[in-house]
Design a binder for these strands. Structure first.
Lengths: 181, 181
DNA sequence: GGATTTTTAGGACATTTGTCCCATTTAGGA
DNA sequence: TCCTAAATGGGACAAATGTCCTAAAAATCC
């Protein structure tokens, strides 16, 4: 539900001094879908949501990202425009490095390289599992698990965010929250 | 629709002699979901489908993979069991290397490393876009694009495969193919 | 404190999709 | 060529989800 990468977080701590940090307040948008990025961000603390806005105006939340997760790495590696937007769900502290710096670390620091490889592989795995679940199960089968996960974290999401995460309308979400119990 | 990676294909050609090849016939399953893998495969020719089977017995096709695409790299990098199955849709020729060999290439061959990084980044991007589309649009909005793509390729998929790719039942697919026209 | 905006809840109806089933067509094997 | 199995097409009904709308509750601002 909320991804973390403590390994990378540790690694970033060893790099302090070489990186800049910035604070982002709730609701502020760090990355705008479709723009060109010049920096890569790594979350030091807080939670962000990463979402795609489609032409019909609807949003789909891909993931909630927490400590040690990277933003903009896909774009830096592929040298393309951003495919999603990122917004702070709680106050954020992020490390900032330029694309060039990021690519350089990948090239020259084996530990960093392997951590990013693992992170990307994990992203593929998670997003594959998520979309398979959403396509093959009814929401009433998925929701219980989701609610359990939510209980485990201390943050409360808005209904809107929850609905966008599972890819349904708020109306349907409300219905589901009522009926099965 | 059918992913390819010509860059990696070229790279593999330069490595011939160091790798083994194998032929896979139509319908044969190369990778079984949940098993432990000891090898990484790279498609030299042909098309494979990569799919997840859920507990309720339904399948969801993540991608169709063609020339230069890799199989089992996620598992080799993460050292975990396979998250999906892979089956030959057309006859396949694949390069085979051991996990150790794959990880070694990543470590020692910068070109290989960057190609795999790009490939993983592209996977994340594609799968994100695919699931956002499927959640936010009605199938009747997606199907036309899909059919256009299909036309471009020469292979014909079974209705079953098509339905599993878009995550609906064959019945619904048939309905959609009738009505809008 | 009162006004305003955001969030939450849910009724009513339309649309989409699934399930179950059966008939027809196609492809392959003996 | 005949037989069987797989693939295709579609009817009828059920279930899931969306859309539109309205009202109450909660949060925010001045």
């Amino acid at each position: 539900m909320i991804r973390k990468n403590l390994q990378l977080l540790q690694l970033m701590e060893t790099l302090e001094g070489k990186t800049i940090q910035r604070n982002i307040s709730v609701g502020q948008r760090l990355i705008h879908q479709g723009e060109s990025l010049t920096n890569v961000y790594i979350i030091r603390s807080g939670i962000a949501k990463c979402f795609i806005t489609e032409d019909n105006g609807k949003d789909y939340i891909l993931e909630f990202l927490g400590e040690g997760e990277v933003l903009g790495e896909i774009e830096a590696i592929r040298k393309q425009q951003t495919l999603c937007s990122v917004e702070a769900v709680t106050p954020l502290v992020v490390y900032i490095m330029s694309n060039a710096q990021f690519l350089d670390l990948l090239r020259t620091m084996p530990d960093f390289n392997i951590v990013i490889l693992e992170l990307l592989a994990t992203r593929v795995a998670n997003s594959s599992i998520k979309s398979a679940r959403q396509q093959l199960y009814t929401l009433s089968e998925i929701l219980p698990q989701l609610l359990t996960m939510l209980d485990a974290q201390k943050i409360t999401f808005t209904k809107q965010d929850l609905a966008e995460y599972v890819g349904i309308s708020v109306r349907s979400l409300n219905r589901l929250l009522k009926e099965p119990g």
